[in-house]
Design a protein around this nucleic acid. Sequence first.
DNA 1: GGGTGATTTAGAATTATTCTAATTCCAGGT
DNA 2: ACCTGGAATTAGAATAATTCTAAATCACCC
Lengths: 136, 136
Amino acid sequence: MAKGIGVQGSGGLTRQRDAVLRVIRGSGEHLTACEIYEQARQLLPSISYATVYNSLKFLTNEGLVHEVKFGKGASRYDRETERHDHAICNACGKLVDFDLDLSEELKRQAARRSHFKPESIQLTLRGLCPDCRPGK
Amino acid sequence: MAKGIGVQGSGGLTRQRDAVLRVIRGSGEHLTACEIYEQARQLLPSISYATVYNSLKFLTNEGLVHEVKFGKGASRYDRETERHDHAICNACGKLVDFDLDLSEELKRQAARRSHFKPESIQLTLRGLCPDCRPGK
DNA sequence: GGGTGATTTAGAATTATTCTAATTCCAGGT
DNA sequence: ACCTGGAATTAGAATAATTCTAAATCACCC
């Protein structure tokens, strides 16, 4: 049998990793490591900054969370791990997830042009978010 | 009339900004600020690291280069400023530019789903680059 | 209760980027 | 040519983001 993996009540995650995962799942936003650390400390006051980073790396590798880099500053983490698309506001920098049905044909076309063996495709829209649109 | 803008021979760019721009345009790769600094010093030995950062910010704002964040580590800069698409290798992390004719209909669809006022859309393909494909 | 390997911890170290204050540079006016 | 003012550059310090290190702890197995 596999060696111990920490706590088993939480789906095989240690308390620390579980706390980090919970924070991410509990937020609609895309949080930075720093924000996650602050919130995780409320669930588990003894957790350290390094553990937050370790956990984020672990959870990302396991496919339980998703890392996103955009705009200014630190990486952010997303609870959404299914394929999805991104909209980024050119005015305020906000990132919003949404979902489009991108065709297989589009994927094949991208593969042909790039000479890559395709795994997934994702669309990014840049524009103005509802809060930044003029006239509203 | 506008006040002095440095040197005029180089299309209105100062020697430093021009050197940074030349380095980026002279490379097929997507360079980091650090790599750009090293190469720019060969064109202009007195240039400082801070000036490279300042110039990158300036050139990015002017739309003369493009900043790209992906994978591990520092931001990278791209000479390609026209709309284009990205392919990222899941094995080695390489990023390749390519170009697809994305329809207006797709853009409208993305705008509808995200509730953003669209400006541009871009596709990102993840997969395996030619060097990392098995069986080749 | 002890052994084992993975995990956590605190803090140091490293890397990436921005800031600061002093200096230099250039275009324009005299 | 000289002066002037604002913008750009410089070196280095400061800050932010992330990774590393070594020791302590933990959960599971015997």
